[in-house]
Design a binder for these strands. Structure first.
Length: 491
RNA sequence: GGUCUCGUGGCCGAGCGGCUAGGCGGCGGUCUGCAAAACCGUAUACAGCGGUUCGAAUCCGCUCGAGACCUCCA
């Protein structure tokens, strides 16, 4: 495959040329949501970022298998013996079955991801459906000598692991520092060392989510599912593992250790991490109580929101920042994204209406250059903000064509159209929202009204024409007079 | 406390040693019966102080400030 895509590998802290294990195949695993709450803006970022990666890899010609899990068990609320997992807690609070909670929030997640035009991954495995694989992995870890059983729970022996491997190599930590900084938490008596983590937890009597295992009735530890499912669907070694930066430690560190000893090799070749979304400079997080859900965002019903923002505005907003930078949320920034996206879409609409000029009059290599810089941006660790800047630059060319200040041959115009089509819709995954829900009847009615207004205008009956415009404005319909006649738009 | 990241014009956000990022907003203009929209043009920046260099937003040091991880989190 010919390309020079470089990706920033958290493991090496460098950009590296992307070379998959088995061309033309590429395998990617991304940590998905824990389905115990409504999806919020924070969920949108990794979903959109890795959707971009997925789309671009496919565009380059790879046959991509993209696996994104749904976490529906485990994830202890606290690392305490009596800790219960989030889903069980939510279920108890709402007096429903845990799987009901899981079903409900999974559906919500899928619904909102679809609105954001996030493509469904190739496989979306659930932790609860892979208990057998997880148990088998624990057995392999025990067999390798890196786990120990206490009272029906199984723990990973981090200190022993660190003697042969480097625990903390992904997050840049040293075990001594970790041990020195471990907080004193209660109920850790079972562990040999506070840095050890659970592979299997024996369920307390009142814990509702439980499965039988060789050690106890219980549930798997919280790093295990990703190791087990990644191995199952992508093999013992695969190309990309993605997730939020907040998962770097300890989640991904745990994954590395588990896979290493269970499979005898490092599983992941490129670790990619998206940065966080901040709100007033602080990380947005469910546990911090400052998360804005996607539903609130799309409806505008949240104290922080001055208006509703469409799914594509959110998508564009996220893509306008590089995935490894924090992205600060504000109404002003969001409004800016909304306007910018509209400008881009209007330009594309115009482009599609343009016809080529007969004579080829020095188009230069501007289109070739534009195409090249778009590829260069994406090949540079998926630099979507630079890509978008290039697309805005190209807009000037489109308007110059319209004004007749520039001429393009049929072939060149086709190339330009193809560029926008490919990059805006296929790769960035944006879509035009404006004309989405107009029925034919409405269209024809509006054409009729515009015609009537034009008649009035032709007769210079300004009172009449302004009245039509004002009345429509009250209905949220804006008339825009252009040189080619009037168009309308619903707010 | 430990580890790490970052501080760019009113706002968001690229930039990885020399060449205009881009978007939103502002200002000026074109178009227009008026208005809006649209388009064109344009100003404002690199937290501070030192250092390296012919040359620094970009490298180094210090100061100040913000944030992340170390506990579930995207």
């Amino acid at each position: 495959m010919k390309h020079n895509l470089t990706v920033y590998n958290t493991l090496t802290r460098k950009k590296e040329l992307f070379k998959p294990l088995k061309e033309p195949f590429a395998g990617m695993y991304v940590c998905g949501p824990t389905v115990y709450g409504d999806p919020h803006l924070g969920h949108a970022r990794p979903a959109i970022v890795f959707d971009l990666v997925f789309r671009y890899l496919k565009h380059l010609g790879y046959k991509v298998r993209y696996v994104r899990n749904i976490t529906d068990v485990g994830h202890l609320e606290q690392d305490l013996d009596e800790g219960e997992d989030k889903i069980a807690k939510k279920a108890r609070l709402e007096k429903i079955e845990p799987m009901e909670v899981v079903q409900y929030y999974s559906d919500r997640y899928y619904h909102f991801m679809e609105l954001l035009n996030v493509e469904r991954p190739s496989i979306e495995p659930r932790a609860s459906g892979h208990i057998i694989e997880q148990i088998s992995m624990i057995e392999r870890i025990l067999k390798a000598g890196y786990g120990y059983v206490v009272n029906g729970s199984v723990y990973f022996d981090v200190e022993k692991y660190n003697k042969s491997y480097h625990y903390g190599k992904l997050s840049g930590r040293k075990l001594e520092d970790l041990i020195a900084n471990t907080r004193e938490l209660e109920g850790q008596a079972e562990k040999r060392n506070p840095v050890d983590f659970a592979l299997w937890k024996k369920a307390p009597p009142d814990h509702i989510m439980r499965w039988s295992s060789p050690w106890s009735e219980g549930f798997p530890g919280w790093h295990l599912e990703c190791s087990a499912m990644g191995t199952k669907y992508l093999g013992e070694e695969f190309d990309i593992h993605g997730g939020g930066m907040d998962l770097l430690f300890p989640h991904h560190e745990g994954e590395i250790a588990q896979s290493r000893v269970a499979n005898g090799k490092d599983a992941v070749r490129y670790w990619l991490h998206n940065n966080m979304i901040t709100i007033n400079g602080k990380k947005m997080g469910k546990s911090l109580g400052n998360a804005v859900t996607l539903e609130e965002l799309f409806s505008g019903k949240h104290p922080l929101l001055e208006q509703a923002y469409s799914p594509m505005t959110i998508r564009f907003f996220i893509l306008q920042a590089h995935y490894r930078s924090t992205l600060d949320f504000s109404n002003e920034a969001l409004r800016g994204a909304e306007k910018g996206l509209k400008r881009l879409m209007t330009g594309i609409e115009l482009l599609n209406k343009l016809s080529p000029s007969e004579n080829n009059q020095d188009p230069g290599s501007r289109i070739k250059d534009l195409v090249a810089s778009c590829y260069a941006a994406m090949n540079d660790d998926f630099n979507s903000p630079v890509l978008i800047a290039n697309l805005f630059d190209g807009l000037k060319m489109i308007y110059a064509l319209k004004e007749g200040k520039m001429k393009l041959t049929t072939k060149e115009l086709m190339q330009l159209k193809e560029l926008y089509d490919t990059y805006v819709f296929d790769i960035l995954g944006l879509k035009d929202e404006t004309s989405a829900d107009q029925s034919e009847t409405v269209d024809e009615l509006m054409n009729m009204i515009i015609k009537m207004r034009k008649n009035a205008r032709d007769k210079k009956e300004w009172d009449q024409s302004d009245q039509i415009r004002d009345e429509l404005a009250k209905l949220g319909i804006n008339i825009k007079d252009t040189n080619e006649g009037a168009t309308w738009e619903k707010e």
